[in-house]
């Protein structure tokens, strides 16, 4: 146990005085800075209703769930975000969405590494219902990823927006 005075001395003025007297100044980083306006990015969909936007240089991507899925899920009450830094294969569960007593896995569309997660969703899970396919700040995207070589190959197995639209139209008919 350290002595009072030594501790107090080491703690001042940065701790004692600063905390009491001055409001904590926070560095506010504009979240918009994260949003790189995509020029000719590629969007693909999985059969499991995830989407991925891949940058033109095929190095990075943004993942989310489709409007079709968001509507089918109903009111989203919690989003369990992926773990930053985690490397995943196509089809691996990376997170989950809870709605109407259902915990539904979110799967990685391609092999990739999670670099950012959308913390807004933890606080405002309903964002997924409103703008599930929006990859900008305030949108319902789930994670930003670094795409690896295998990931680029995996893209070939996914559907482009036209094909996905047809695919969901058939799914709806079957139900």
């Amino acid at each position: 146990m350290a002595s009072i005075a030594r501790c107090v001395r080491s703690a001042r003025p940065s701790a004692f005085t600063a905390f009491v007297k001055a409001p904590v100044s926070r560095t506010i980083i504009s979240r918009r800075a994260f949003h790189a306006t995509a020029i000719s990015q590629i969007r693909k969909y999985t059969k499991d209703h995830e989407w991925i936007d891949v940058s033109a240089d095929m190095k990075t991507g943004v993942i989310g769930i489709s409007e079709y899925a968001a509507e089918a899920l109903g009111d989203v009450v919690y989003v369990e975000l992926p773990e930053e830094g985690k490397k995943v294969q196509a089809g691996d569960a990376i997170g989950a969405v809870e709605s109407v007593k259902s915990a539904a896995d979110i799967n990685a569309p391609i092999s990739c590494k999670i670099t950012h997660v959308n913390l807004v969703l933890e606080e405002k899970p309903g964002t997924i219902n409103h703008v599930p396919e929006d990859d900008s700040h305030g949108g319902g995207w789930i994670a930003k990823v670094a795409v690896d070589e295998q990931g680029v190959k995996d893209l070939e197995n996914l559907m482009d927006p036209e094909a996905y639209k047809e695919f969901t139209a058939t799914e709806s008919e079957e139900h």
Binding site: S3, I4, A5, V8, A11, F19, V20, V24
Partner: peptide, 26 residues
């Protein structure tokens, strides 16, 4: 009586009846 005790280290506002109030955030 603490040899390390230096009265100036304690903000006077935080001392009452010989007691020093710990800062909430610290």
């Amino acid at each position: 009586d603490d040899p390390d005790f230096i009265p100036g280290d304690y903000p006077p506002d935080d001392i009452h009846n010989g007691r020093f109030t710990l800062d909430a955030d610290v």
